[in-house]
Write a protein that binds this DNA or RNA. Structure first.
Lengths: 150, 150
DNA sequence: ACTAATAGTTCAACAGTTGAATAAAATGGA
DNA sequence: TCCATTTTATTCAACTGTTGAACTATTAGT
């Protein structure tokens, strides 16, 4: 009965992924300052790691509409954490990058979020952590492939 | 250098969890009908599995305010998928449960979402799936413990 | 009996999202 | 070169999900 096993995995995955998403978001939000939301923290983190990028790229990366990115980046620009610059070579393109203030805020938030995640991670054996994260990263790639195939 | 290793895990975990959350949500939403949102699907699934429950329980489970649950359940009751009943023994309590229509809709949505998740899961070796889900479930429990300890 | 605590709702305000309409700039084939 | 098409980003109205404070109704603890 291979189908039986797979359906059980699907059910367990769907149930647990929603739980972890919600509980994780609540915990992370509790570690952030009032001025920064959960989604803003992750978006700024992504831009810091990725370097300057465009709204089209962000929309594709996170599977949202470009207008959603415009709305989010508007708030981040208003707060002085993000900068918009026109691309010299292609004047349609707006390049997004962190401001110095943005770098400072995200570094500050990182400190408390890292403490939180460390507290969670510390409860797992090292090998289990490494194995889990590796599969998680593989899952992220597979989700992108599946999305592109549609 | 144990600290070095942990910081790397934390960084990788934060990055990949946001990616999977966003991309996964986009894919699941694409498998649902227009009438049902991503969060509504998961909430109805939880109530089906859990059986009748209260808004206080849902709020604690998902780490949100009770008023958020009221707002969500209002929309689900309006759609005829969820029912509110006063508890006979404690008249402060409102018991939430699926209607027959709710059961039918969620079963219908399950069919397409299961197809999607199966497509994703099929790309992993069986042992990796089982190992991953087991750690994921353990993570959900740890997040609850950490939250309760605050 | 009276104060505390508990369960749930309401409300205003906000963040995030969609989808359609728009503007501006680049591309590419005739 | 010209013009249609594509690409990039924004605006707008409408919606979902969320918070936090204020509120109602009920129960629990002395």
């Amino acid at each position: 009965m291979p189908g039986r096993n797979i359906d059980e995995w699907i059910d367990r995955y769907l149930s647990v992924s929603f739980l972890v998403m919600k509980r994780g978001a609540a915990l992370v939000k509790g570690s952030l300052c009032e001025e920064m939301t959960h989604d803003q923290y992750y978006l700024l983190r992504y831009i810091r790691r990725r370097g300057a990028c465009t709204s089209t790229e962000l929309a594709a990366m996170f599977g949202v509409n470009k207008s959603a990115v415009t709305a989010m980046t508007n708030r981040l620009v208003d707060k002085g954490w993000l900068r918009r610059d026109r691309d010299k070579n292609d004047r349609r393109v707006i390049v997004l990058s962190l401001t110095e203030q943005g770098e400072a805020w995200i570094a500050e938030m990182d400190r408390s979020v890292y403490r939180l995640v460390e507290e969670v991670i510390a409860r797992f054996p090292e090998e289990e952590i490494e194995t889990f994260i590796r599969t998680y990263e593989r899952l992220a790639r597979v989700l992108q492939e599946v999305e592109e195939a549609k």
